[in-house]
Computed example of a mutant assay.
Amino acid sequence: MPIDAATALAAEPRSGRLAWTAKDVQLYHLGVGAGANPDKDSPATDPDELRYTLESRLHVLPSFATVAGAGSPGVIGGLSMPGVDVDLARVLHGGQSLTLYRPLPAEGEATATSRIAAVYDKGKAAVLVMRTEVADADGPLWTNDAQIFVRGEGGWGGDRGPSVRREPPAGEPDRVVERPVRQDQALLYRLSGDLNPLHADPEFAKLAGFERPILHGLCTYGITLKAVVDTLLGGDVARVRAYTTRFAGVVHPGETLRVRMWRGDGEIRVAVSAVERNEAPVLTDTVVTTHP
């Protein structure tokens, strides 16, 4: 069997060094839409966007943790772990969870320790949970969990895993915003470290079952968190404690994302859909946990 759950779970964690600069942070922010002016009639950059794009004012969007050091091991790293031997064309990023222990510095060095934390049998697919814990000289910075969905690799009778589905938020959302996705968004975002050809090569995308390249799920993840921070958290990135989502559908470059947000007690529930495809779900079970 291409996935040997026992071997994957028993494998020794892998550790490596991460380093990033303010330029890496700025490139990531541009990759998730920073600097775009919502007022199409004005050529000037929105002054609020300078906190993401100007080095003298730089605040780090917490989702940068998914690409810091040219990308945490995440999906690609999970596929190179002992006990895992699968075809990249069968792999999808199923979900992502991020826990933050303090605000991310604009420049830094840290140690990342990664392991397969769980392997679940979903029948027609397997799900690997790749956990990466990152710490610097001052202590823990963040923990990333990437849920890796591998089509055609389930059915061995293993643990199906916990249900992550939540009831949809009740009532009308507190805020609704739209975020356009540029035609070249995936090409720009991939420069932060995720070079999977699914997001750039039309022929590879067809082999994976898509009519054309699709946007990185983590790019949508970053676009969405930025929308929440900018609209409900007053632009204060330090208020984000944790951020989790399930990738429910693809996004094509050139589409428009509709981001719906509901305030809760210490959390913000979010749902994201593709406007041009009759509100097709993109992100579901999405929660931003906040500090007061």
Rank of each mutant, 00 (worst) to 15 (best):
A11T: 03
G264T: 13
L187S: 15
D48P: 02
V177I: 05
D4M: 06
P213T: 02
T290K: 03
E203N: 10
P105R: 04
V86C: 10
W142K: 01
Q96P: 04
G155H: 00
L283A: 10
P47H: 02
P47Q: 04
I3Q: 07
D87E: 08
T224L: 05
L207D: 08
S63Q: 08
E211W: 11
H29S: 06
T256E: 09
T284W: 02
A248D: 11
Y52R: 01
T53V: 05
R131Y: 11
L195A: 15
Y52K: 00
D230F: 04
R258Q: 13
G152R: 00
V229I: 13
A208K: 06
V176N: 01
G108I: 04
A186Q: 00
A117P: 05
H199G: 14
R90Y: 11
A36G: 08
M261N: 08
N196K: 01
G31C: 04
V275Q: 07
D265M: 07
V129W: 09
V164M: 00
R57I: 14
R263P: 10
A205I: 02
T111Q: 04
M81P: 01
K206Q: 13
P162D: 06
A65E: 01
V129S: 08
T286W: 09
I268S: 06
I268H: 12
D184V: 09
D24W: 07
G217Y: 04
L233R: 03
P169V: 04
P13S: 05
I268A: 14
F149T: 12
R263Y: 15
R182M: 14
N278C: 10
K40Y: 15
D85L: 14
G161K: 00
L61W: 02
A65V: 08
A248M: 15
E107W: 03
G254F: 11
D145I: 14
T45Y: 05
T289I: 08
G78W: 14
Q185C: 07
R246I: 14
T256S: 09
G222F: 11
G264W: 09
R246A: 10
A110H: 02
L218P: 06
W20A: 13
P197E: 07
L61I: 14
G234E: 09
H216G: 09
V119H: 01
P105F: 06
F210V: 14
P292G: 14
L257Y: 13
G157Y: 03
S42I: 10
A135P: 05
V129I: 15
L50F: 15
G35R: 06
R246S: 09
A271Q: 00
L50W: 12
R131N: 03
I223H: 03
V67F: 09
A36C: 10
D4Q: 05
A65R: 02
A205V: 00
G158D: 01
R160V: 15
L100M: 11
E279R: 05
G152W: 12
P253R: 01
P62G: 13
H216I: 11
L232S: 09
P292N: 02
R17I: 15
